[in-house]
């Protein structure tokens, strides 16, 4: 039981990192990406390969994942962010599908459909941190560092520029902001931080395959951000907890046939998103009410 709760907490922490990093572009810069699971995956595969082939410890494997993820995000951001928002959504969907194909076909590196098995236990500064409690501490420490970094970025002039771009791109560029460059940087920061979640995930399971990085995962992270509250620091963390706890709680409800839990879960998410859009468009943790949004209309 205790192990179960610790494992669940680790998964919540990993997903919270995904949600927080997606929120950095979605909530603060208004960039809607359907490929977040890919950067999660790139982090996971890179860390796994670094550990398996080169004996990297957690820190080195994570750094490698961040680097590869950040560089590959440029391939998406540089061409796609020069055009309008809708095209970025389409381009990110394209990347999601393309990269997933690479994950499942590039057998020599990713192990193909079967994935990578036998990722060594994580070590940090020479210590084994595979004990669940230690690994939970490591996960929470990563989440904490990322939250602090994002908070600093959001409060800097960079963060203000991103919010300005989110609210009105034309006005932002009329104030001298290089919109394409700022958005590219934001995507790069978000993607490299998402890779940290990937590295944690790979070491946590000691096994990864493409199923953890499919489109549904990207969509689920979006749901976490929207439910928790876009453009807030802690909202996505809460969103991640809710989305992961819900199925766990449902299994404890009597009279629910286990085979139906999946579809009931989908219905609850769907209903929650619709109700939020109507009553609290800025999410559970977000500012303001639906009245604000109405007044915002011209």
């Amino acid at each position: 039981m205790a192990t179960y709760i610790i494992n669940l907490a680790i998964l919540i922490g990993i997903n919270a990192i995904l949600a927080v990093t997606l929120n950095f572009i979605l909530g603060y810069a208004g960039i809607f990406s359907l490929a977040h699971a890919i950067f999660f995956g790139i982090g996971a595969y890179t860390a796994a390969v670094a550990a398996m082939k080169f004996g990297a410890d957690f820190a080195a494997a994570t750094a490698a994942g961040m680097l590869v993820s950040g560089v590959i995000s440029l391939a998406l951001a540089l061409p796609a962010l020069r055009v309008r928002g809708e095209y970025f959504v389409a381009a990110s969907l394209g990347l999601q599908m393309l990269a997933l194909t690479v994950f499942s076909e590039w057998k020599s590196v990713t192990g193909g459909i079967g994935g990578l098995i036998g990722i060594p236990p994580p070590r940090l500064f020479g210590f084994d941190v595979s004990d669940p409690v230690l690994f939970l501490a490591l996960t929470l420490a990563c989440l904490g560092v990322i939250l602090i970094a994002i908070r600093a970025l959001v409060r800097s002039s960079f963060g203000r520029s991103l919010k300005a771009i989110r609210d009105d791109e034309t006005a932002a560029s009329a104030l001298g902001k290089n919109v394409a460059l700022l958005k590219t940087l934001a995507v790069m920061v978000s993607s490299s931080f998402a890779a940290v979640a990937g590295s944690l995930f790979a070491f946590f399971l000691s096994f990864i395959n493409v199923e953890s990085f499919v489109l549904e995962v990207s969509v689920q992270v979006i749901a976490m951000v929207i439910i928790g509250g876009t453009g807030t620091l802690l909202g996505p963390v809460i969103g991640a907890a809710i989305v992961l706890l819900l199925p766990a709680l449902l299994t404890y409800l009597p009279y629910l046939p286990p085979t139906e839990i999946g579809s009931i879960q989908q219905m609850i998410y769907g209903l929650a998103m619709v109700l939020l859009m109507i009553f609290r468009p800025s999410g559970l943790w977000g500012y303001g009410s639906s009245q604000d949004r109405k007044r915002a209309a011209p």
Binding site: F158, R160, D168, A171
Partner: peptide, 27 residues
């Protein structure tokens, strides 16, 4: 702009502050 194009979800202070910060990236 004729339609103002304010940064609607930013405060007055943030709107004005960001106008002074066009010259660089992160800081």
């Amino acid at each position: 702009f004729q339609d103002l194009k304010l940064f609607s979800h930013m405060t007055v202070l943030e709107n004005v502050t960001t106008a002074t910060e066009s010259g660089s990236w992160l800081w």
